[in-house]
Design a protein around this nucleic acid. Sequence first.
DNA 1: CGGTTTTGACCTGCGC
DNA 2: GCGCAGGTCAAAACCG
Length: 174
Amino acid sequence: MENFPYSSSNPNPNFIDASENFDLSDYNYLFVDDGSSDDFLSQNEIVQSVSDSSGSYSNNPTPTSHNIKCMKGVKRVDAKSRVAFRFRSDLEVLDDGFKWRKYGKKMVKNRSNPRNYYKCSSGGCNVKKRVERDNEDSTYVITTYEGIHNHESPYVIHYTQFPPNNSALHNLCL
DNA sequence: CGGTTTTGACCTGCGC
DNA sequence: GCGCAGGTCAAAACCG
């Protein structure tokens, strides 16, 4: 688990050691929508298509660039960066070092679990994230980040090759 | 008491 | 234009 982004010395008092709480062998996918292409899949299309191909990564427990799925799909609506994770967890919200304020909850059609909406609570930062449980396997949580933080994390986050920062995630896919 | 969560209402885009 | 679905707002409740 040495390649996981956060070290055990993270000073964030609320930090959850992901290596203890998440089974990274069940880490499935990541997609990045960096706004640089005119062609984007909708979020649901990406979720579906990556879920379909998740088996090819299931035997690789380490989240390296090798098992990160980068996709650019069919129709871009805006130029916001969007990053999604799907991971197995009992927890609804992964503590990524930033402070989030919940502003909405919505039942989505054909999904058994509600979708929760969060905004970065740092003033002037418009990054949003959506959190929902996988419709087909509720032990998985799907987290979608939208936008790029215009500030540093309120906590010192140590990471190696899998940073929680959107632009850094994007770099992995270049 | 201030920040966060809850939740119904409202807004907006899209398909028909 | 209408209805539906997804996303956001905002007031009240909650909590440390």
